[in-house]
């Protein structure tokens, strides 16, 4: 994956694989993401929410470590998010 900026919708696994230098920014915040089996599912936004970190400040640090410019691209983020399918929830009656 070649992306010019980090987006909140990127998964942890994508980010660490593309920019290994970012790994320290996870452990420094006490996040157990590096080596986690679910790293290929969880996005940066979800991680920030789980660990109650300010997403933008954290993204800025990750971008710095990755050596990419820090920019919040809300439009692209919304596009990414809308690609996700809605799970069909069958919650009835049991």
């Amino acid at each position: 994956m070649i992306a010019r900026t980090l987006r909140p919708t990127f998964t942890v696994a994508q980010v660490i694989a593309s920019w290994p230098a970012t790994a320290t920014a996870f452990s420094r915040y006490g996040m157990a993401c590096v080596g986690c089996t679910m790293a290929s599912f969880d996005t940066l936004a979800e991680v920030a929410a789980t660990y109650r970190q300010d997403l933008e400040a954290w993204l800025e640090e990750l971008s710095f470590l990755a050596g990419v410019p820090f920019r919040i691209d809300r439009e692209a983020t919304r596009r990414d998010a809308s690609k996700l399918e809605r799970p069909h929830r069958s919650k009835g009656g049991r």
Binding site: M31, A32, M38, E46, V47, P87, K91
Partner: peptide, 26 residues
């Protein structure tokens, strides 16, 4: 969320915490 023959993991972090017996910080 557990449906019939279908499971949706709503909190991957929470489930990893249970699986790895991690302290549930965060």
């Amino acid at each position: 969320e557990a449906g019939r023959e279908k499971v949706l993991i709503r909190s991957t972090h929470g489930l990893v915490t249970v699986a790895e017996d991690l302290p549930s910080r965060g």
